[in-house]
């Protein structure tokens, strides 16, 4: 399949917890067949609904970290003096690098008079290729205290593209990361459409505007849907007006419905249950898919 025929939809939210993952999983079911990715590598949850069977696991490396070879360390203390990140700990005459504090600048490695510091690549997590009932899935998880750069997200997306081309699947659906930082940019650059899921709250409006500004920067078409819209209809209208004036299309509203949690308990997408929110999500999907 030619790359031009593949469409990629990323589901975003300003803050986390707006229902992004529940909607992504529902879209995966409604699309019939798509390549799915979980780009929320910091707190990946899509696998809890799609129950992927992992077929491949790959370690993910990013940057380096300093490690002192105890047998070669002379205890001169140079590393302790020059480290700007307070990453060198001493116990008696022995020196160790605190991996949490080490930023991987390599200064101690370069200036250790005994050349006793190694600088291996830092293992920051892993990424996986799996199969699900809705199609292939690429997902990942970042290690604790690892730096959440966009690199792992880019890796996940590249794999998804390879699979889409290879298996002739014309659609990629990504559960995106929260926020507006580097991982979000990595998840949205060059996609066909970004759907921003927001809630009708004061912070929801604030975060939405930042995500939409980002979409404009990267010339990515944007759509907006308001989840739990009925908890504050007034704010929903303000959000929809703000979305339209920021050049985004409004593709629907989803009501507050406890069945969303029920679906989670049953490890299902909301649309796999018969509920009011499922009907709402179907309409959002119809509107959103029409923009792809």
């Amino acid at each position: 399949m030619k790359k031009d025929h593949i469409r990629e939809l990323v589901v975003l939210s300003g803050k986390g917890g707006t229902g992004k993952t529940s909607i992504s999983a529902s879209f995966a079911v409604l699309a019939g067949k798509a390549v799915l990715t979980d780009c929320d590598v910091d707190a990946a949850d899509l696998h809890l609904l799609l129950r992927p069977e992992v077929e491949q696991r790959h370690a993910f490396f990013s940057g380096n970290e300093a490690v002192i070879r105890q047998q070669d360390c002379t205890g001169c203390g140079t590393c302790l003096d020059i480290c700007r990140f307070k990453a060198i700990n001493t116990t008696g005459a022995s020196y160790q690098v605190d991996p949490v504090a080490c930023e991987g600048c390599g200064v101690c490695v370069r200036f250790c008079p005994a050349s006793a510091i190694d600088f291996p690549k830092r293992n920051c997590g892993e990424w996986m290729v799996s199969t699900t009932r809705c199609g292939p899935m690429v997902h990942a998880h970042l290690g604790i205290a690892a730096e959440n750069s966009g690199k792992l997200v880019s890796t996940v997306r590249e794999q998804a593209w390879c699979i889409a081309v290879d298996k002739r699947i014309p659609l990629i659906i990504s559960d995106g990361p929260p926020g507006i930082g580097c991982p979000v940019i990595a998840s949205m650059s060059g996609v066909s459409l970004a759907l921003v899921v927001t809630e009708p709250t004061v912070s929801g409006l604030h975060d939405l505007q930042r995500v939409l500004a980002l979409a404009r920067h990267f010339s990515v078409p944007a759509a907006v849907c308001v989840n739990k819209w009925d908890i504050n209809p007034g704010q929903t209208e303000r959000i929809e007006a703000a979305a339209r004036s920021a050049g985004a299309e409004v593709t629907g509203r989803i009501r507050y419905d406890r069945s969303v949690t029920q679906a989670q308990h049953q490890q299902k997408a909301v649309v796999e249950l018969t509920t009011a929110a499922a009907d709402d999500i179907r309409l959002v999907w119809k509107q959103t898919a029409a923009m792809l």
Partner: peptide, 11 residues
């Protein structure tokens, strides 16, 4: 020729 960057930087 471009006289400046045409997209915003990543961060």
């Amino acid at each position: 020729p471009a006289s400046s960057a045409d997209v915003e930087g990543h961060w």
